[in-house]
């Protein structure tokens, strides 16, 4: 959007205030991650430095213990010793299938919801809103007993299906609002030309819906990647995904004095998200505002 010059010129004190505020916010947003990234290459004595906080920057104990200012001990411990790579593989599998299945379901349903003029479409979306508001852990407490009884507990596939379902309400809302932005005339004219609904969807809507699908896919990915409540309780120790694995590091390794494993794992789990924002910033922003701006 264009900005008229009237909005641009702020009085000096106001723009100084805004700049200061912005700098403080940026420090708050970025420094914790940079600090942890830097610290992940140190030994624990430096990362938690009782004597002098500058040790965490210079790595005095790291030099004393390992000979260099940087060490990969934390990463070695996490990835090799504690087999973090297994958790990474599991996370990759879960994320891939959750995103694919969830997108397929929500694209179809979102299209129908955006085109239907009946009341039940409205109630469908309201029900989804209520489902969206329910804490996932309340659902998990409903799953456990039946899953134990039917031997469904502890499998990656069960977790994937559960995450798809928990993901649906949000994806539905997002896809519906994207499809509402695709003019109805487009598919209706195709139907006038003799297509049925499914053909119209395939030949007319399918080619133009990708921006919406990519954005919704990103958020499905984030939900699957970031989930803790479901994956921590529905998976066994040996097929855990990354986030419960990190949480389990805290229980076991903190006592052993290997909190650096957790630090390294945290950085490893954050790196992909960092890249994700780097490439998909525009889609993330449009997704966050999709429901809001159009109202």
């Amino acid at each position: 959007m264009s900005h008229t010059p009237t909005q641009r010129k702020l009085p000096g004190y106001l723009s100084a205030l805004l700049t200061t505020f912005l700098v403080v916010w940026l420090i708050m947003a970025a420094v914790p991650f940079l600090w942890t990234l830097w610290g992940s290459f140190k030994v624990e004595g430096d990362f938690f430095s009782k004597a002098d906080w500058t040790n965490a920057l210079t790595g005095e104990l790291t030099i004393a213990e390992t000979g260099g200012a940087f060490t990969g001990q934390g990463y070695y411990g996490a990835w090799v010793q504690e087999e973090f790579w297994r958790a990474v593989m599991n996370s990759a599998i879960v994320c891939f299938f959750v995103v694919t299945i969830s997108l397929t379901c929500s694209t179809l349903a979102g299209y129908a919801l955006s085109r239907s003029t009946y009341n039940y479409a409205f109630w469908f979306l309201i029900a989804a809103l209520i489902f969206r508001a329910m804490p996932p852990i309340t659902l998990v407490s409903g799953y456990l007993l039946p899953f134990f009884e039917w031997n469904l507990w502890g499998h990656l596939s069960t977790t994937i299906i559960v995450l798809v379902a928990i993901n649906q309400p949000f994806s539905l809302w997002m896809m519906t609002s994207f499809f509402r932005n695709i003019p109805k005339d487009l598919d209706e004219s195709a139907m006038v030309d003799g297509c049925n609904r499914i053909q119209a969807f395939r030949h007319v809507i399918l080619p133009v819906m990708w921006p919406g699908v990519i954005t919704t896919g990103l958020f499905s990915f984030l939900l699957a990647y970031n989930d803790f409540a479901v994956t921590a309780l529905l998976l066994e120790k040996d097929n855990q995904t990354m986030i419960p694995k990190i949480a389990s590091f805290l229980g076991t390794t903190q006592t052993k004095g290997n909190v650096m494993f957790a630090v390294a794992a945290v950085i490893s789990a954050t790196a992909p998200l960092f890249v994700l924002i780097l490439f998909f910033q525009r889609q993330i922003v449009s997704g966050l505002t999709a429901g809001a701006v159009k109202g």
């Binding site: 984030l222 803790f228 986030i243």
Partner: peptide, 22 residues
């Protein structure tokens, strides 16, 4: 915007751990 998005996109477990360690 990139920097500002970080605290929101990062996993809540991870983000709060980072803060907790600090």
């Amino acid at each position: 915007i990139f920097v500002s998005l970080l605290p929101f996109i990062i996993n809540p477990i991870v983000g709060s751990l980072v803060l907790f360690w600090m």
